[in-house]
Computed example of a mutant assay.
Amino acid sequence: MVRNYVRKRVQTYSNVDIGEAIKSIKDDKMTINEASAKYNVPISTLYNRLSGHNGSSLRGGTTILSKEEESHLVYVIKTMQDYNHPVSNSNVRTIARRCTTELKKDIPDNGPGKDWFYGFMRR
């Protein structure tokens, strides 16, 4: 049976509210407790944003290839398929390993793992 995620709590504040609350805290106009009450933002959210634990960085792991390098890799794989050269999962991983070696990227000795491959194929 398929599970459907239902958010248990509705967010009662916006990013604008968070921004205004943080600005008023940084300008020493309010304490965190006062800003939380006025802008209806949880104290923990304000603490996390002020400390830089979340909200300021990208989600997910670090990438090995840049967007341009990745798009070139996709182009190579699609070109191989256009010339009727079958490309299996292991072929894609081998091509990616050779590509990262030529670009002098720091990867494990055995090359990109299956988790990289499945993440790459979803894009």
Results as ranks from 00 to 15, higher is better:
residue 2 V to I: 07
residue 4 N to W: 09
residue 6 V to H: 07
residue 7 R to I: 13
residue 8 K to W: 05
residue 15 N to D: 08
residue 16 V to T: 08
residue 16 V to Y: 05
residue 20 E to N: 07
residue 20 E to V: 00
residue 23 K to N: 00
residue 27 D to Y: 03
residue 27 D to L: 14
residue 27 D to R: 08
residue 29 K to G: 01
residue 30 M to K: 09
residue 30 M to Y: 06
residue 31 T to H: 04
residue 33 N to K: 12
residue 34 E to T: 06
residue 36 S to T: 00
residue 36 S to A: 13
residue 37 A to E: 09
residue 38 K to Q: 11
residue 38 K to H: 13
residue 40 N to E: 05
residue 45 T to I: 01
residue 47 Y to R: 15
residue 49 R to A: 05
residue 49 R to L: 04
residue 50 L to M: 07
residue 50 L to C: 05
residue 50 L to D: 01
residue 54 N to C: 10
residue 57 S to N: 10
residue 59 R to N: 07
residue 59 R to M: 08
residue 59 R to E: 07
residue 61 G to H: 10
residue 62 T to F: 07
residue 62 T to H: 12
residue 63 T to C: 11
residue 63 T to I: 12
residue 64 I to K: 07
residue 65 L to M: 15
residue 66 S to Q: 09
residue 66 S to I: 04
residue 67 K to E: 13
residue 69 E to N: 02
residue 69 E to M: 04
residue 70 E to I: 00
residue 71 S to V: 05
residue 72 H to T: 14
residue 76 V to G: 10
residue 79 T to W: 13
residue 83 Y to Q: 09
residue 84 N to H: 13
residue 84 N to V: 13
residue 87 V to M: 06
residue 87 V to Q: 03
residue 88 S to K: 15
residue 90 S to H: 09
residue 92 V to I: 13
residue 93 R to G: 06
residue 93 R to H: 13
residue 94 T to L: 07
residue 95 I to L: 08
residue 97 R to L: 11
residue 97 R to I: 03
residue 98 R to P: 00
residue 101 T to E: 10
residue 102 E to W: 08
residue 103 L to S: 02
residue 104 K to P: 00
residue 106 D to C: 07
residue 110 N to S: 14
residue 111 G to S: 12
residue 113 G to W: 13
residue 114 K to Y: 15
residue 115 D to L: 14
residue 117 F to T: 11
residue 118 Y to L: 15
residue 118 Y to D: 12
residue 119 G to K: 11
residue 120 F to L: 02
residue 121 M to N: 15
